[in-house]
Amino acid sequence: MSLVDDKPPALLDRHPLLKATLGTPGNAAITLALAILAGLLLPRAWDWFIWNAVWWGSAEDCTAASGACWAFIGEKLQFIVTGLYPPEQSYRAYAACGLLFGLLLVSTSPRLWGRGLLALWIAGIGGAIWLLGGGGPLVPVATDKWGGLPVTLFLSISAFLLAFPLAVGLALARRSRLGGLRLYAVTFIELVRGVPFIAILYAATLLFPLMLPEGAAIDKFARATVALSLFVAAYLAEIIRAGLQAIPNGQYEAAQSLGLTWWQATRLVVLPQALKTVIPAIINLAIGIFQDTTLVAVIGMFDLLNAARVAANDQVWLGFYTEAYVFVALLYFLFCFSSARYSLWLERHLNPVRRH
């Protein structure tokens, strides 16, 4: 008699998706309800999105149609993507977006992480600023003319890059044995986390200029970037602190037994392990910051969402807000969904136990 059970696995055990959707009576009921709801909604969505939609033509053609007016998106695509940026210089805005997307794509490979990638990011951010702002052979464009996707990308990426080293310092300071340093870190983190981001934006835009000496001025775009960076740093510091607390003290002791100083042990041993444990939380925060950039509309900046809203206010194409918001929502979904999937892959890739 064989000691090994040769009974083949059940159908649900061999198909994880079926097991997740039909494995229990509750899951089966939810799956059935969702299938019925999809059966009711999908035909109507198909009619509005595809079948009865107007893909090209004028505003009059869309008025008589019962479906979506994608001709409006085709007509206003450049304004939605670049906002108030001069149309004759729009290629620079597209090039800046391509540069930032390229940097993000390169950064997805852990093999390339290092000082070289950091230098590439610094050069890339400088290149994006030069492309958008001009200088040298390029015609200067003021920051109040920047808009659309470049603003959304630049704000979210720059704020996260500026916030990361500050967040690491705040997380270490909050765990420090120096009471004064710990008090400053706790005060900053709790104060920023206890105030809505809109209030911080208003303070940076309206109150901060009043504190400057007469004749001094700081660009509104720079003030918004700094405000968002401070906001991100407070939340990111708490995430990093949670990762540091998850690392046992034995890691410090083992590193010190090898002759490493406290800073060397933190930088080379503890901090890399802590960051690995909080990868999902960091990616989740990055997604939230990418979405929160839409709040800069309250201070008059034309991000991607605000540019789409203004495009629907055109007297010729007035009222196509649904198409504008659906188009922008799809762009946000593609970026956020791909980031979430990358987070799952990165977590599995950096965890040797789960990888094997």
Results as ranks from 00 to 15, higher is better:
residue 148 G to E: 10
residue 223 R to N: 00
residue 287 I to M: 02
residue 179 G to I: 11
residue 109 S to K: 00
residue 55 W to R: 05
residue 8 P to Q: 12
residue 86 P to H: 03
residue 29 A to F: 03
residue 237 A to L: 05
residue 332 Y to S: 06
residue 121 W to Y: 08
residue 88 E to W: 05
residue 85 Y to M: 11
residue 135 G to E: 03
residue 183 L to P: 05
residue 142 A to I: 09
residue 261 T to N: 01
residue 81 V to K: 01
residue 96 A to F: 00
residue 31 T to R: 00
residue 137 P to G: 00
residue 78 Q to N: 13
residue 319 G to T: 15
residue 141 V to T: 12
residue 297 A to W: 10
residue 152 T to E: 00
residue 8 P to K: 12
residue 185 A to E: 03
residue 77 L to K: 14
residue 342 Y to N: 07
residue 271 L to Q: 08
residue 241 R to W: 14
residue 268 L to I: 13
residue 271 L to G: 02
residue 319 G to S: 13
residue 60 E to C: 00
residue 249 N to A: 14
residue 74 G to R: 15
residue 317 W to I: 11
residue 42 L to G: 10
residue 4 V to N: 12
residue 300 G to M: 09
residue 139 V to G: 01
residue 240 I to A: 06
residue 332 Y to V: 03
residue 301 M to E: 01
residue 263 W to M: 10
residue 138 L to C: 04
residue 73 I to M: 10
residue 96 A to C: 03
residue 317 W to H: 06
residue 98 G to D: 09
residue 3 L to I: 09
residue 154 F to T: 04
residue 104 L to T: 12
residue 51 W to H: 14
residue 91 Y to G: 12
residue 287 I to T: 08
residue 297 A to I: 09
residue 49 F to Q: 14
residue 165 P to Q: 10
residue 53 A to V: 13
residue 255 A to Y: 09
residue 127 G to M: 02
residue 134 G to Q: 03
residue 258 L to K: 11
residue 155 L to H: 02
residue 16 P to S: 03
residue 238 E to I: 10
residue 275 L to T: 09
residue 13 D to W: 15
residue 198 I to D: 00
residue 249 N to G: 15
residue 121 W to K: 07
residue 58 S to T: 15
residue 86 P to K: 08
residue 21 T to S: 09
residue 206 L to K: 04
residue 251 Q to A: 11
residue 114 G to H: 05
residue 323 E to D: 09
residue 313 N to L: 14
residue 195 V to S: 07
residue 299 I to E: 02
residue 146 W to T: 04
residue 107 S to N: 08
residue 146 W to A: 03
residue 309 R to Y: 13
residue 310 V to W: 14
residue 299 I to G: 06
residue 4 V to D: 04
residue 168 V to T: 09
residue 202 Y to D: 05
residue 117 L to R: 04
residue 202 Y to C: 01
residue 278 V to K: 08
residue 57 G to M: 11
residue 157 I to N: 01
residue 83 G to M: 01
residue 83 G to N: 08
residue 319 G to R: 14
residue 225 T to L: 04
residue 99 L to R: 01
residue 155 L to Y: 01
residue 143 T to W: 06
residue 199 A to W: 11
residue 53 A to L: 10
residue 235 Y to H: 08
residue 321 Y to R: 11
residue 200 I to R: 03
residue 291 Q to T: 06
residue 327 F to V: 04
residue 171 A to G: 03
residue 288 G to S: 09
residue 52 N to S: 14
residue 115 R to D: 11
residue 283 I to V: 06
residue 188 F to Q: 03
residue 205 T to C: 01
residue 122 I to A: 05
residue 213 P to M: 07
